[in-house]
Amino acid sequence: MAEPYLSIDSIDVFYGPVQALFGVTVTVGRGEVVAVLGGNASGKSTTVKAALGLVRPRGGRITLAGQRIDGLDPHQIIGRGVGSIPEGRRVFAEMSVEENLRLGAYARRGEPPASLQADLQEAFALFPRLAERRRQAAGTLSGGEQQMLAMARAWMRRPELLCIDEPSMGLSPLFVDHVYEVLARWKAAGLTILMVEQNANMALQLADRAYVLRNGAIVVQGAAAELAGDPELRKAYLGG
């Protein structure tokens, strides 16, 4: 087996005295879509936060394209070709839609303006709703539109690896469908994705492989198609 693109290797994460992750190992190969599933407070968000450098693991190691990244700051990890769609969208509410998108390309600021401008047009083509509202402050968008913006913003990074934290949280079913349509398109285009999701059924349709976390440890992992029927999955969510 070729070395995975992202390798999270038996990490322990603590918040003060509380241990949130217990020896969690997650790998993502190039071009693969991997979902981390679990109920509330299972540690799934913490896993992706560790990959992004937002929390520092106390034990274990994380490598990206063969190089260690645990201990790096988030901006350094983003600088190595990682994009992020944060939990709760976190758009810059007082800035315009267009400015949000330009900030998404912050790590590419050395590139010629023309290529960024072209990508901006492409992002607007991908999300026509955003094009209509390009001058509007992001905070005035609806929740679903903000999710679109967060996705387009991460896409502007042109990442090699995209980390997504709960893309369907708090969205109406129509928007959830839309989000997954876009993600499926990105997957088809060969993008590597690590996603954390509470909406297990949707995530398993998209993902190649999945890990199920419970109380900060992995309880099941495997191919998405096989996991869909696994009773452990239901147990992890509905608590058995």
């Binding site: 901006h75 976190r90 810059f92 007082e94 800035m95």
Partner: peptide, 20 residues
Amino acid sequence: RALRATAQDPEAAAQMGIDV
């Protein structure tokens, strides 16, 4: 822009690759 983004939401800014 990075300054303004940091002012609004430092954690999100870091995830754009901004050195907060």
